[in-house]
Write a protein that binds this DNA or RNA. Structure first.
Length: 766
DNA sequence: ATTCTACGGCTTTTT
DNA sequence: GCCGTAGAAT
């Protein structure tokens, strides 16, 4: 029989899912029901118990964080996971396409375009297609993305008779794809689309990959869009060993093309599907679970699940009423203090969720004032900063100078007197001659109506890029390439010359990019050493994608971004409800529980798609089920939104919760609390109405934040690449060392604050 | 070529 | 009320 370990502490349905033999399997995993555990154990069991080769297993997730976590946990079970593919849809597709590049008409060194790059390509496509219609680049891009999510190529796009706009979109889309191809670039959508197209048209290739992947597992299946599902159906057609895990009640990305029907219809698409329901929740106290169930129960068209828990009833959900959004923030602050004082809940186990980012500001102000450390999750990421994007554009040009969007982006960075008009003329010339911008730069004098100065500057730019390409070939690792790039382009120098406070920060960010590259190089070396230790898969399965260190680094930037940071140590986490999915906290605050805020206004109108409301409701369910012990819902009688004062009714989701599950402070106490932060008494009619209403019825980044403050360790040997923790700066990786012993100076790249020089005794290994 | 001002318009954003 | 874009001004 199974030896102890893999099946330990699994409940019967979990065990069924892990032990399921051949054929399709749908695991309906309620919130907090241990779905990751099931996936991890199943992968381990396949490889360790059933003799499946690691390279015959493919597990796809949506987020890097989920992929990382899964890899990590599988590894801990003693599985050589480096050969198994546990990765995101996009990383996996990119990897496949690097291998199969020629078969989709690309070169293997293709680059991946982000949103901004896409826009610049769309602009060019729009200009070339000569549309006079009122179609903004944004709109056009949105329409194109939608088509890609649906898995439709331009020629497959459905255009109704006489729909002029759709017809235009189709032409722009077609031209857009040509331009991308000419740039040897793909956008995110293409990664999936081209792979689907390859599978659809090349039976030989498809057969090869089908032979490779005997077992395919998909996490968060409810979030798959049509292309992703097509991809899965091509790779693992019925009756393959396709395991999909998800929760239709947590489908909150419909607006990005996710299709709940994928999970609802799966048993129909895969006849003979075994369905396993994970309904035991290990996370939340009973009261919280019941509140969440009460909310989600109102949705039609669900796969019926009854979440239950062996946990105690626990505390009632608590309602916080305030006069306005500032009072609300104040009320939350006071509850946070009480939880710390009386509930012995650490700040790191508390979270505040809001529907829209605009709500965060007031909350932040209140927390700052109260000196409560917080962490804003998913704030603007390092790699989204303009100077970093400029730098990445140059790095990509080192690899692939044909990339028009990158040329366009940096042709005048740092400023070198190449203005819009010049670029415009160059671009028109390139379009006419069917050349890439870089090719068009061979002889700038041929570009019509340019003055001699412009010609000279364009020639200089071309020389710069050519130099970069050469330097890129010679660079031994990513860090060296980045340094070369910064030197040759003079980006850092230009920023230093500018001398403003902002430009200094930017220059520091660029230095940090070097740090990131160094860290990447160290990790890559470590990974290669580890891979060499494991037996290599047979030749017929694993052609590793050809790639240089720089290429791999860029790919990491595009597809992985920053390493997700742990939700802050000793800080309250603040995030949107969307960002909360997959996380859990002892105490959860949901603010703005008002009609028009949550559910969002867009779901409210008579003409709104009812599916919008259903999704808001699922979002609420996700929010509630993040809480382990304490759940707070907060609302304000009035709040200013978009500059105007609005009076909102309490959220319908609150009325769905049976009153016996809800607690509220005494009104007098409430009033006292409110008058402390604001002068006027609340309108009584509203208060009564409110009370009556209630009577009826599981990666994140850190930005603005606070720090608290130690320990000792001596430095011995080469500690570079070592992960350490600093009491103030948190987690980081050692990049460089000068000196030795407890006083050695370390250069560390911290996840939260970037590069810092720190004395060794202030950090501990982690 | 950069910098200023006026206007619109407005969720959520794993990759 | 804030932010990002488009257009004009310097």
């Amino acid at each position: 029989m199974e030896e102890p370990g893999l099946l330990d502490d699994l409940n019967p349905p979990q065990r069924d899912a892990v032990l399921h033999g051949e054929g399709p399997l749908l695991v309906l995993a309620g919130a907090g029901s241990g779905k990751t555990r099931v996936l991890v154990r199943r992968i381990a069991s396949l490889i360790l118990k059933r003799g499946v080769k690691p390279w015959n297993v493919l597990a796809v997730t949506f987020t890097n964080k989920a992929a990382r976590e899964m890899r990590h946990r599988v590894e801990r079970l003693g599985v050589p996971v480096s050969a198994a593919e546990v990765m995101t849809f996009h990383s996996w597709s990119a990897r496949m396409l690097h291998i199969e590049a020629e078969n989709v008409g690309y070169e293997p060194n293709f680059v991946i375009y982000d949103d901004a790059d896409q826009l610049s390509v769309v602009r060019r496509a729009l200009a070339e297609v000569q549309v006079d219609s009122a179609l903004t680049p944004r709109e056009a891009l949105h329409r194109i993305d939608q088509q890609k999510n649906q898995g439709r190529l331009p020629q497959e796009m459905h255009v109704a008779e006489g729909d002029y706009q759709a017809a235009t979109v189709r032409r722009v889309y077609a031209r857009y794809q040509e331009l991308l191809r000419a740039s040897n670039a793909m956008d995110f959508g293409d990664l999936l689309l081209h792979l689907v197209e390859l599978f659809r048209t090349n039976a030989e290739v498809l057969a090869r990959w089908r032979r490779r992947y005997h077992h395919v597992l998909v996490d968060e299946f409810q979030d798959t869009n049509p292309v992703q599902y097509q991809l899965l159906r091509l790779l693992a057609p019925p009756p393959s060993n396709l395991v999909v895990v998800g929760d239709d009640d947590q489908s909150i990305y419909r607006w990005r093309g996710a299709e709940v029907d994928n999970i609802l219809g799966f048993p129909g698409d895969y006849p003979g599907t075994k369905v396993v329901k994970l309904e035991q929740n290990y996370r939340s106290d009973q009261n919280i679970l019941e509140a969440a169930n009460a909310v989600i129960r109102q949705n039609p068209r669900r796969m019926e699940k009854r979440l239950w828990s062996q946990r105690p009833r626990g505390e009632l959900m608590k309602l916080l009423l305030s006069r306005d959004e500032r009072g609300e923030a104040q009320a939350v602050v006071e509850e946070i203090r009480a939880l710390q004082r009386e509930g012995f809940i650490p700040l790191s186990q508390m979270a505040i969720f809001f529907r829209v980012n605009a709500q965060s500001r007031v909350m932040e102000d209140a927390l700052r004032l109260a000196r409560i450390p917080y962490t804003l999750v998913n704030a603007r990421s390092f790699y989204e900063r303009a100077e970093i994007k400029d730098a990445s554009a140059y790095l990509r040009l080192m690899l692939n100078p044909r990339s028009d969007a990158d040329v366009q982006r940096v042709i005048n960075v740092p400023a070198r007197g190449i203005g819009d008009t010049t670029v415009e003329r160059l671009s028109a010339f390139a379009s006419a001659k069917k050349l890439s911008l870089f090719e068009a730069l061979v002889d700038p004098a041929q570009v019509p109506s340019l003055n001699s100065g412009a010609v000279r500057r364009l020639a200089a730019f071309r020389a710069l890029v050519e130099g970069l390409v050469e330097a890129g070939k010679g660079a031994p690792d990513a860090a060296a390439a980045v340094k070369q790039m910064l030197d040759r382009t003079g980006m850092v120098t230009a920023l230093h010359t500018e001398g403003s406070r902002e430009s200094v920060t930017r220059a520091e960010n660029l230095e940090e990019l070097v740090g990131a590259a160094q860290e990447f190089d160290l990790q890559r070396q470590a990974a290669e050493a580890a891979a060499a230790a494991n037996p290599p898969p047979p030749d017929d399965v694993a052609a590793p994608p050809p790639s240089t260190p720089l290429q791999a680094f860029l790919e990491q930037i595009s597809l992985v971004g920053e390493a997700d940071q742990e939700v802050g140590e000793g800080r309250v986490a603040m995030m949107t409800l969307h960002a909360a999915k997959g996380l859990e906290f002892d105490a959860v605050f949901i603010v703005g529980m008002e009609e028009g805020v949550f559910p969002h206004q867009r779901a409210l109108g008579a003409d709104a798609d009812p599916e919008e409301m259903a999704e808001e409701r699922r979002l609420c369910y996700v929010g509630f089920t993040r809480a382990r012990r304490r759940l707070f819902a907060s609302l304000a009688q009035q709040r200013s939104l978009f500059g105007e004062l609005r009076i909102n009714r309490p959220s319908r989701f609150l009325s769905d919760v049976p009153p016996e599950l809800v607690a509220m402070d005494q009104p007098q106490e409430l009033e006292r609390q409110q008058s402390r932060s604001m002068p006027m008494p609340p309108p009584s009619a509203f208060r009564r109405r409110q009370r009556d209403d209630y009577a009826d019825d599981e990666g994140p980044r850190i930005d603005r934040s606070y720090a608290q403050t130690s320990d000792i360790d001596a430095v011995e040997g080469d500690v570079r690449g070592l992960r350490v923790r600093h009491p103030q700066f948190g987690q980081g990786t050692i990049l460089d060392v000068t000196g030795a012993g407890p006083d050695a100076k370390l250069t560390i790249r911290f996840e939260s604050v970037g590069l810092k020089r720190v004395i060794a005794r202030f950090v501990t290994p982690s």
